[in-house]
Design a protein around this nucleic acid. Structure first.
Length: 426
RNA sequence: GGAGGGUUGGCCGAGCGGUUGAAGGCGGCAGUCUUGAAAACUGCAGUAGGGGAGACCCUACCGGGGGUUCGAAUCCCUCACCCUCCGCCA
């Protein structure tokens, strides 16, 4: 959610942001916000004047009664005033509700370093690192390798659940577990606090993080008002809803491994084959709460950390600076990391690091000050960031494809061997 | 699932429907005293919105939302959460 004050004072900035993010429908929302805000403010000053008079008269009635004097006239007078206050309060509530819901539909403002672009084609490749493997045999895509060895059983997933719910078995399951463990340990070593999260969120948290209102129908909605988490970000970020953090404790850094559940409505075709895109996948996520002045530096550090893991896994990758048209609703700036997948000969997005600035924090009410909740001074909104140290499925796809050998087996990346317990999967 | 009890400021804890934004205590900050510290004493301290050049002033907020009333932290309804007991269960 944006700062209403900023919208009011610099509507042109918001207008430009909405255009850059390719959200023309939000232009109408912006105008609506401006109108509702104007109306609401006028109403409030009227309301408050009436309330002030009501309070003063009530006080006088109290005085008169205490002294045993008659207050009948004043009480009769108050009836009308009180009705008016009630009417204005109701109006104000309704306007505020409309304003709040309109406000939820305005996207975050992109950072000045984000290139303008209409679609994913305008993203910029910042650099490419690592050697693409060269084979003297025909490299297979991961789904063939996995099927041949039973590492990933798509059919079993279809039987028990449905398409897009892969079952990992044997070496595949070991590789998955090893990779998760490796990433978590590395992040804990880098100063992140490990968290084990609930797999469902309530609507309030999902709204605060900007995942609701859910126009794309990305989240699975289940009974009792819960949603299955599309990423542990919702929990890691939502944890500090309403908190006033201690400035000295910033940045707070959290990491969690969790299953992620996404509807991915409308996806089809070759690019979703195998485990390129699934409804359920495991992801190790990082979240930071930072001082506003530190968030862009933190973003670089988070991205660098993810990259160092890819370096260690010896996977070739590249970093993309996402353009205005391809960064998400909540995001001010975003980098994607893509790993080269030798069997498919294409880049797979495995990580995405975003600075949300104060967009979530405002809705969450997550602030900081010297001394924390009991401290002094004005609480100020923190900045939140999130990034993945990988969607596991795609990294596994890339490992299978890049590390395959002529015999149809797959070498295990050196750093994973202690976790997987073997040097080669066959 | 059933039956009770609870939710007040950073924390603990008062609070008859009328000067209660809220006693008291703890903790915090500043000062007096002290060579320094402690103790003691004095003072300052919530959040959000609005007005004013400023001193200040107004409004809302006692778990959330509604209601009763001239007036609600106090009465009523409702929802959420927490605790205790029973049942079920990994």
């Amino acid at each position: 959610m944006l700062d209403l004050k900023v919208i009011r004072e610099h509507p042109e900035v918001v207008r430009q942001a909405v255009r850059a993010k390719q959200m023309p429908s939000a232009l109408g929302t912006l105008n609506q916000v401006l109108l509702l805000d104007e109306e609401h403010r006028l109403l409030r000053s009227d309301l408050e004047a009436n309330q002030a008079q009501r309070n003063a008269s009530s006080k006088r009635i109290g005085d008169l009664k205490r002294r045993g004097e008659a207050a009948g006239d004043l009480i009769r007078e108050m009836g009308a005033l009180s009705d008016e206050v009630k009417r204005l309060e109701e109006k104000s509530r309704s306007l505020d509700a409309q304003l709040q819901s309109a406000l939820l539909e305005l996207p975050n403002i992109p950072h000045e370093s984000v290139p303008y672009g209409a679609s994913e084609h305008d993203n910029r490749v910042m650099f490419e690192r690592g050697e693409k493997p060269a084979f003297d045999f025909e490299a297979k895509p991961h789904w063939e390798l996995a099927a041949a060895h039973g590492w990933i059983d798509l059919a079993a997933g279809v039987k028990t659940t449905g398409a897009g719910f892969p079952v990992f078995k044997g070496g595949g399951a070991r590789l998955l577990r090893g990779l998760i463990q490796y990433c978590l340990n590395a992040l804990v070593d880098a100063g992140y606090t490990e968290v084990a999260v609930p797999l469902m969120v309530n609507a309030e948290s999902a709204t605060a993080t900007g995942h609701l209102p859910d126009k794309e129908g990305q989240m699975y909605e289940v009974t009792d008002g819960f949603y299955l988490i599309p990423t542990s970000e919702l929990i890691l970020t939502g944890m500090h809803k309403g908190d006033i953090l201690d400035a000295a404790a910033l940045p707070l850094k959290y990491t969690a491994a969790s299953a992620c559940l996404r509807r991915e409505a409308g996806s089809y075709g070759a690019h979703v084959r195998g485990i390129n895109r699934t409804h359920q996948f495991d992801k190790v996520e990082m979240v930071q709460f930072t001082h506003p002045d530190e968030s862009y530096a933190a973003m670089e550090a988070m991205t660098g950390l993810s990259e160092s893991l890819l370096d260690a896994l010896e996977l070739p990758y590249r970093r993309l600076l996402m353009c205005t048209g391809d960064i998400g609703f909540t995001q001010a700036k975003k980098y994607d990391l893509e790993v080269w997948s030798a069997g498919q000969e294409r880049w797979l997005e495995v990580s995405s690091v975003s600075n949300i600035t104060d967009f979530q924090a405002r809705r969450l009410g997550t602030r900081f000050r010297e001394g924390g909740a009991q401290g002094r001074g004005k609480p100020e909104l923190v900045h939140t960031l999130n990034g993945s140290a990988f969607g596991m499925a795609r990294v596994i796809a890339a490992i299978l494809e890049n590390y395959q050998d002529a015999e149809g087996g797959v070498r295990v990346p050196v750093v994973l061997r202690p976790y997987v317990g073997r040097e080669r999967l066959e």
